[in-house]
Write a protein that binds this DNA or RNA. Structure first.
Lengths: 217, 217
DNA sequence: CTCTAAATATACTCGTCGGTAAATTAGGAT
DNA sequence: ATCCTAATTTACCGACGAGTATATTTAGAG
């Protein structure tokens, strides 16, 4: 009894870390599972589309039942949102990675395009491209718009930088960013993971096209 | 009996034209209404998305009930397909219009881009871009694929022609067509009909970008 | 004036699916 | 051993929406 008591009060210090370690493990576990749910959803959405995928489908692909899915995620909408966010994060990383580069604007833009293509061919790519405001509540829709806008602004500022340092011909930065993003986003519509063409090759061709243009030099 | 028989056989000549005129009128009427159904559907799909639009919605926008809609169209899927086809037809027209032109490949391509942008900003544009195989039966999906492929081939052959006549720098025609179509299709995602920018202006900027490229000359 | 066929409406079926309430199990802490 | 909490399941609800069976109206044909 006394021994137990002692173990109970003193150990608070000693077992504190152990406790936290184990709680931490549990949290990590939960996060890993949550990620699995999101990734499975992304894959399913990409294969069959958002509306043609039921939560029962996703659950059964995880060998689990629907309420389990709800244990990790608020609702279907949030699932889509998370997929979306994951996709956008990949692209944002690509843009941020070029933030402190000393290369010319055009070179940095090319690097961003390569990462963009990589991201768009992932399972999250489809979600990112297809996540339409129409399927999201006003709140989520606003968040999505904000994230998309960040990407857009990132592209535009790279273009501006390129124009400023002379590596890019003066142009309408807005339309240029739209055309670029459009060509890249559209990859999600035609790309199949078993495609012969790797994302990096696609990116290379796109960079060449956008840099040199169609007209012979 | 005999009289009726006679009236039935002889009048075929006299009332034939009248009959056909009126039947013709009825057919035209039916077609006009059917078109109205399809256009209303296209607008609704564009505004709220395919899955978020019920046939009751479409019917009530036409001040009519659901079975009436079914009187003009097989089912929801076909409605989407018709919208899709209407959109693609606009683009195909643009391509065919350049078939017999004597201009250079690059000039003809530019003309096609302009028409393409026009089409994509229409109500049918959205449907064309969003009509995913996922929402269509295998049969319809095949048809859609075939139509899309026609557009793709049209673009590619224009590019080839341009390369052949020296107006376009030798390039990967497949990737170039994909990039072009992507940039154009993506317009449907961001364009709002109340946009300041007219389709023709967008097209102009795109043409300039794709022709000259980003790199200064 | 009647007959017929097309056009439209009423009122329903039925499956699907998002979401949940209430039990049950597992595993770690004491 | 016991207790507590997180994880998971079973069994359900309610809504929505595609599609239809069946009347009813309308209008042209004879």
């Amino acid at each position: 009894m006394a021994g137990r008591q002692a173990r109970k009060s003193i150990p608070q210090r000693a077992s504190g870390p152990a406790l936290w370690a184990s709680v931490g493990a549990r949290v990590r576990d939960r996060e890993r599972k949550r990620d699995a749910v999101i990734m499975t959803a992304a894959r399913a959405f990409r294969e069959r589309g958002y509306h043609n995928t039921s939560l029962d489908d996703i659950a059964s692909e995880l060998n689990v039942t629907k309420p389990t899915v709800y244990h990790y995620v608020e609702n279907k909408e949030q699932l889509l949102f998370e997929c979306f966010r994951a996709g956008l994060a990949l692209i944002m990383n690509g843009i941020e990675a070029q933030q402190e580069s000393t290369a010319t604007g055009r070179e940095r833009l090319a690097a961003v395009i390569a990462r963009y293509a990589e991201a768009i061919t992932s399972d999250f790519g489809w979600c990112m491209v297809q996540a339409e405001n129409q399927d999201l509540s006003p709140t989520m829709s606003r968040k999505v718009k904000a994230l998309k806008s960040e990407i857009d602004q990132g592209l535009r500022s790279l273009i501006r930088a390129g124009v400023a340092d002379g590596s890019i011909r003066p142009c309408d930065e807005k339309m240029t960013a739209f055309a670029l993003a459009g060509a890249l986003n559209w990859i999600a519509h035609w790309y199949r993971s078993d495609d012969q063409l790797a994302a990096s090759e696609i990116a290379q061709r796109f960079i060449e096209l956008f840099e040199l243009g169609l007209q012979p030099r």
